[in-house]
């Protein structure tokens, strides 16, 4: 089975976030980077499927030179080769642009299965995977918790709201967006890191990928800002029993019914 995993490098969760001068981004010099968390689960799932069924795992990512550390990390964990789409900026808000570039870079390869994380920890649009499926003409399902391969079909368990799940089935090739927590990602081994140094990393620029993607990147970010925090403290008076009753009433009325 030939599997493609889409990785995104995002700022590490503990990073200090300060806005850049133009308020269009956070200051990169403050950040350290890591693989987007749901993508690490997608990679692990791909590696396990390869161990079961044989085949190849290829990782693709787009962004500046620094993202190669994330591709190398995936190679160290066992992916066979990497594709780096070299762009100035990984955080363009236009995910059609990003998905278009990925589609152009991988279309010829005819993957059996494409896995992505369900959304990114930075922008969190949750769009890139499904738009990519559309560009590649593949059936897709989102928020996947479990995968079963049966001959040329795939069964996948989707997470719904409120603890509910559903099983969906579709023919291969297909694209799934993976939810965090469906497996336990492995560590890169010392030997894996050493081997990764000599694994293939194909580099390709948007220009080389051709006309298909020009003219997109139509969405433009105007401004980002830090939300103003507000905090209200209210004391519920009365005896403990009365106060508890008031609290229950308030929770019923205000918290349970408010959109999550």
């Amino acid at each position: 089975m030939k599997i493609l995993v889409c990785l995104k490098q995002v700022s590490a969760k503990e990073s200090t976030l300060r806005l850049s001068e133009d308020s269009l981004h956070v200051r990169e010099s403050d950040l350290s980077f890591e693989i987007n968390e749901p993508d690490t689960f997608a990679l692990e799932e791909a590696l396990r499927l390869k161990e079961q069924l044989g085949g190849e795992v290829v990782v693709v990512s787009l962004g500046p030179a620094r993202i190669q550390t994330s591709i190398r990390e995936a190679l160290a964990k066992g992916a066979d080769r990497g594709i780096h789409i070299e762009t100035e900026n990984a955080e363009s808000v236009d995910r059609t642009w990003a998905a278009g570039l990925i589609a152009a870079a991988v279309r010829e390869e005819k993957f059996d299965l494409v896995l992505t994380g369900l959304q990114s920890d930075d922008l969190g649009t949750g769009q890139t995977g499904v738009i990519l499926a559309e560009f590649l003409g593949l059936p897709h399902a989102t928020i996947i918790m479990e995968i079963q391969i049966e001959e040329s079909r795939i069964k996948a368990k989707r997470e719904l709201e409120g603890g509910w799940f559903e099983w969906v089935e579709m023919p291969l090739p297909a694209l799934l967006t993976i939810q965090s927590g469906l497996n336990k990602p492995r560590y890169a081994s010392l030997l894996g890191i050493k081997k990764a140094k000599s694994k293939e990393m194909r580099r390709v620029t948007p220009v080389e990928l051709g006309a298909e993607v020009s003219g997109t990147n139509a969405l433009r970010l105007r401004k980002i800002y830090v939300p103003v925090k507000s905090k209200n403290t209210e004391f519920l008076d009365g005896t403990p029993k009365e106060a508890a009753a008031k609290l229950v009433e308030r929770i019923r009325r205000e918290i349970v019914s408010s959109p999550s």
Partner: peptide, 23 residues
């Protein structure tokens, strides 16, 4: 010896246990 990875609080191996190497 490098560190063992994937050991829980009580010292048991987790499913992603990766023993340390002798470099």
């Amino acid at each position: 010896l490098t560190d063992d990875k994937g050991v829980d609080r009580a010292g048991n191996h987790k499913s992603n246990f990766e023993p340390g190497y002798h470099v």
